[in-house]
Design a protein around this nucleic acid. Structure first.
Lengths: 253, 253
DNA sequence: CGATACGTTGACGGAAATCAACCCCGGTGG
DNA sequence: CCACCGGGGTTGATTTCCGTCAACGTATCG
């Protein structure tokens, strides 16, 4: 998949994209780079001059705290621009890490900003994307502050699955999800041990299957209910019309 | 203070604002409204057609969860546009509440969006503002996930104080902060009881004085250290040059 | 004067952290 | 070929931070 094709899928999942805008996107200068697993693509505190468009692979954003603790802030995959905020906040306030080996395209800030000025509708759409990023943070805050570990975990898995499905990265009721339990724990704000036990709870209840590489949803309604998951906050253009794993609703497409 | 004057102070605290842009802002149609304490200015799930510029008073944003729990997501004061995200995310994914009686100005979306198109530099600055909003969410996530109650509380107080100081709402080492312990607790994701005890800890250590109306910082260095507070993530135009309560640094202005 | 909202305190219970093993598996190198 | 190693996952025992419950104090207000 090309860089612009990945971006196009993403933007179309959250808004309308005209042909002229797509053509304009294709004029952007791109620097294609491969990032190795664990590589720090953008460092906390650094000043950045380009945004990173993720074409293939997985990345995450994280903050390292004084006593060595780590908090993961977001997970990203093909089509995402994990450091879009750097377009107007030049200094990074967290770092961007390649969760797996990745293919990325760097888009220099200057031409990208120019393009958002010349094509206000594209600018609005990218702005919208960054606002959805923020909406996800808000939801994480609510889950961390007021929900139990299992609920939070279930919610997070729902969110990742729906986001991936929206850009065509899920087949049927499964998606690739190459996360260690340690990464999951650092995203949820839990210990590894407790994360492990919460995962077991979801598995033992027959809601999911997950081996650190692939997530299979066995009972979407159950997982969604347990995680109190309501996809409104993702602001997708089409709300998922049916529960991905509900064969009845799926029948009438 | 007028609506545009409040907005001007805010925008100047995070970026450059040219005279022509200020004049352009003054052409915006405003609907001035008073909101009473506790009033829901924008409801979760509602579709909004205007942004709310806060001229005087305090507001907060919150999510209500299924079992009646509440999570406060942000605190706002004069100059803030708490629902700026609605400009590109029409449906609210949380609600906006008047913490105290407020004076607000509603700015309809259409002319505001037009203005961001005609004045790309203003658009960029508002975008930046919404990105700082997100940066604050990220920091809250890290605090909730990986820090103790007192640390989180100290950090939150530091943040509020610095944000207010940046727009001239703090005098010396004190600012108005009309929050109940229940609201503080719902922001921190703690119980009221534990919030009360954490506050006492800060008071007993001689770091702050706080009576639910006014926050006085008695030991900025200590509070800042305890809360692991580093203001970088607020992306202010001028980093606070001196610690507000450090008389030595303050001497050489 | 109650009524209500907010703050404070003590006793108790529970969810999650911490500590400490142990297992499995793939890679690597003697 | 097998010993060794490191990363990741799993389990049990113990501890602790924080939540819950319940009561009481205080101030404001109609």
């Amino acid at each position: 998949m090309t860089a612009i094709e990945a971006l196009r899928r993403k933007l179309e999942s959250i808004g309308e994209l005209s042909e002229s805008v797509v053509r304009a996107l294709e004029t952007l200068p791109l620097r294609l780079v491969r990032a190795e697993r664990g590589e720090e693509v953008a460092a906390d505190g650094a000043v950045s001059t380009a945004c990173c468009l993720l074409i293939d692979g997985y990345m995450h954003r994280q903050k390292i705290l004084r006593e060595g603790g780590r908090q993961i802030l977001a997970f990203h995959f093909a089509g995402d621009i994990p450091d879009l905020q750097s377009l107007h906040l030049h200094r990074m306030d967290h770092s961007l890490i390649a969760t797996t080996a990745c293919q990325v395209a760097f888009i220099p800030h200057d031409p990208l900003r120019q393009l958002t000025h010349n094509q206000p509708l594209l600018g609005d759409l990218l702005w919208r994307d960054s606002l959805i990023d923020a909406a996800i943070f808000r939801t994480w805050i609510a889950m961390m502050g007021r929900q139990s570990a299992v609920c939070h975990l279930a919610h997070t898995l729902c969110e990742l699955f729906v986001r991936m499905a929206a850009v065509g990265l899920a087949q049927d009721n499964a998606c690739r999800l190459p996360l260690t339990q340690e990464q999951l724990a650092d995203a949820l704000g839990l210990s590894i041990v407790h994360t492990n036990r919460s995962l077991q709870e979801l598995r033992d209840s027959g809601l999911i299957r997950f081996d650190g590489r692939r997530l299979v949803i066995l009972d979407w309604a159950g997982l969604r209910h347990l995680g109190q998951f309501d996809p409104t906050y993702l602001h997708l253009r089409r709300r998922p019309r049916f529960d991905p794993c509900n064969p009845i609703a799926r029948g009438r497409s």
